[in-house]
Amino acid sequence: MTGDGTGSRMHTGGANPMPVDEAALRSLVAKAVAADAEAWEHLYRRSYPRLFAYARRRLSSDTAADDAVSETMLRALDRISGFTWQGAGFDAWLYGILRNVVLEAYRTDGRVTPTGTLPEQLDNGATGPLDTLVRRDDHDQVRAAFRCLSSDDQEVLELRVVAGLSADGVAEATGRGAGAVRMAQSRAIQRLRGHYEGLGRAD
């Protein structure tokens, strides 16, 4: 992670976006291109937590999010023959598909406010009651600040920080330029900080 928050980062804890290394992922994708069912199941299980979380934060229910992820994987199966490693990678490609699926859901159902238990409201990685409380204290403020951000700011931060995509990856997934993504991320961080500090003063 670079000082301006625009470098590549890999967060640990919770669902790991890359449980296999690059070579293993390439091997897995090569098998997926050949319609290997085992490879597709592996890719689904590997990608599911974060794809679900992205969809769940934008859609109305767990079922809607599951639908979106399933649709994403089926489209990926349809289009895998056109995937190349010249882009920002397989994860960016998948998120690009998911993003379109979510946007289509918006067009069909209208943009909705997610209800129920969102992914980040779970006790992420807590090892006991005290740990849970500490984590909640640590995370509640930044989570509240994040919710104050615009959907665009939230998306760029989520794709970079949670999905673990590079700036190029976010650019590919969102159809923007990498430079614009870096600029958007920098501004989103500043706005996040503003809300975070504001919430801290309110306490």
């Binding site: 928050g5 980062r9 804890g13 669902a15 069912a37 992820v69 399933s70 006790d123 930044v142 920080v161």
Partner: peptide
């Protein structure tokens, strides 16, 4: 701040629904 955000937003490990996995497997097969 971003580390806190990552910790707050990163989802826990979660298994996909069995029927959805099966659907993808069958489609691939």
């Amino acid at each position: 701040l971003l580390d806190q955000l990552a910790g707050a937003l990163t989802p826990p490990d979660r298994e996909p629904p069995v029927d959805r996995v099966s659907a993808l497997r069958i489609a691939a097969e």
